[in-house]
Design a protein around this nucleic acid. Structure first.
Lengths: 183, 183, 183, 183
DNA sequence: GATGAATGAGGTTTCATTCAT
DNA sequence: GATGAATGAAACCTCATTCAT
């Protein structure tokens, strides 16, 4: 039942947008009474939070899998960086519909917790990865923070705004960017 | 009168947040009747848009001034890059109160137009700048797009989230990042 | 407009009872939009309070008028006491419909303020009256309190429950009761 | 099981107040399923009624015991009247917590039946008592009705509102009041 | 142009009650 | 008998917008 509700919430969010995300509509979509929502969630906000948390977990799982599965990486080897960047883009593109709603229609405070959790997880993975790759930085955690912020926005906005940049060209740019941090 | 209203709107937005940004409150703050708002703005949304447009223009003016006033720049000279990044941060920090409301409380669609305008302007300045600096890229405009996106998020989030990274360290990272694009 | 709303509230309260006293129904009765209620009253509770305050004021005005207009009174003269008791009953009976709702359907906490105000006012009038009448008591204010409480319930319940006691017989009892306090 | 439920209902009523007296909360407190309530009580109202009936019976038992145990009484003897009034106050004070909820938070219609039963019982006791004491009145039952109403409110409100009247002074007033009816 | 009282659709939430297990 | 998840009607209140003055 929780599943039915959360799934319905996700559908309504993607299909109707955040403005039209009402408890009644979610209940309708779930084929459930409005009252039932409140057996499992204290309020509407908690429902949104649950959708976001699951989505954030999915993405960070995918990113983690990519980084883990990439095998030994040489940051100075452009092919390695491209592979990682590619995996990242793919993880983000997987649910572009929800991405758009979350990024464009939700006030950031609504998804701040989920986003920070995701960023923290990716940052930690990246810090390990950078160390393993032998990258030297004055402050490795600061470097990880900067990279995550930079890559996050580039990737998300590329998916959402579809600028006139081919995927391959974007990967080239990621490679160039990585080059700056590898020295 | 338009001035009074827009200024009141800005005050309410910063002081009370977007949730509490109601037409009645703006009218109160402006010492004007709610009806009068509609003599100058078609709806509440237009009021927000006007505030954002002015703010976006201010920032891009400041950034433009920084880039223009920097004089001849050598991208391979770390001191040049630091100076630019520094100016950028300063421009963004100038009205951190409004920045927070816009970035965290407004749905992105609300400020999309203003943000795109700002990004476009910065991108164009940057493209000229990159060309002048002799940076060669397969697609200069793609490169500018990527840099703007990357820098935007790093700078904004550094201002809003205050991660444990000293300003100097952040400038170092910007320099490192720029290094990747200068080869 | 405030008048229209308060009057409508009174009508709904008397006609439909407190259970059915809803903001929408009051608005309907007043021929007004639900939103308009909230221009003049912060919430539903304030609306009830206003009705009660006015009613309480009316009653105490009537009682005050009776006591004042009674002229010189001799507590030991049964005719004087009867006249006052009669006036009191009449004041209470004037709006028996509202009396019933207030006394039977409203939780006492809802009308506590109005009731206390009324009781205090009557008590003060009574204290003056007792002094003027030359009644001696160890603690005149305690005596006034007791009398008001006693008379209040007897009168109200006689009006509401219509026990098988003729009005004249009730007045006799009031006279007897007063006799106890006059020595 | 009925015991468990009724006791739980009483606890919830006194602890949480009537506003928060919900069937779910009673079920929780009783360690029972909400559905089980409806095996023994047709609805929520019946549950309240049962609590009130028991409470009303307790009080009237206590009052009856006091009147019965008082032995031969002389209404013209102030000490007799004081003893009875004292016993009455004590009976009412025994469960002041529930008294407050019943008197202040419940609409009177909710406890009307229990209250009338209590009043009737006390009235009958009193009528017998008055006859035994040789008090002569035109209509003894009317007199009993008036006394019960008068005493009820004075006693209850003294317990609940705690006016600045010492218990002894209150008993004095009761005595004075009784004096009026004894002639 | 300025006013500001009036609007009214519609959203979130509660809770007594039911009924299949 | 006992359960407890599910129900769903309905209540209060907000606020962008209008329009007669």
């Amino acid at each position: 039942m929780v599943e039915r509700i959360v799934e319905a919430a996700r559908v309504v969010l993607v299909r109707d947008g955040y403005e039209s995300f009402t408890t009644n509509r979610v209940a309708d979509q779930a084929g459930v009474s409005p009252g039932s929502l409140y057996q499992y969630f204290p309020d509407k906000s908690a429902l949104v939070t649950e959708v976001l948390d699951r989505w954030s977990a999915e993405i960070s799982d995918r990113v983690a899998a990519s980084l883990a599965g990439a095998g030994p990486v040489d940051v100075n080897d452009p092919r390695s960086v491209r592979a990682i960047a590619d995996a990242l883009l793919t993880a983000i593109e997987a649910d572009a519909g929800l991405l758009r709603i979350v990024w464009e229609e939700l006030p950031a405070v609504r998804h701040r917790a989920a986003q920070h959790a995701l960023e923290r997880r990716v940052r930690e993975l990246l810090a390990v990865f950078l160390t393993a790759a032998g990258v030297r930085a004055t402050d490795p955690s600061a470097r990880a923070w900067v990279i995550v912020m930079a890559v996050e926005n580039v990737a998300v906005r590329w998916v959402l705004d579809r600028p006139d940049i081919p995927r391959e060209a974007l990967l080239d740019e990621f490679t160039a960017l990585a080059g700056g941090f590898s020295r």
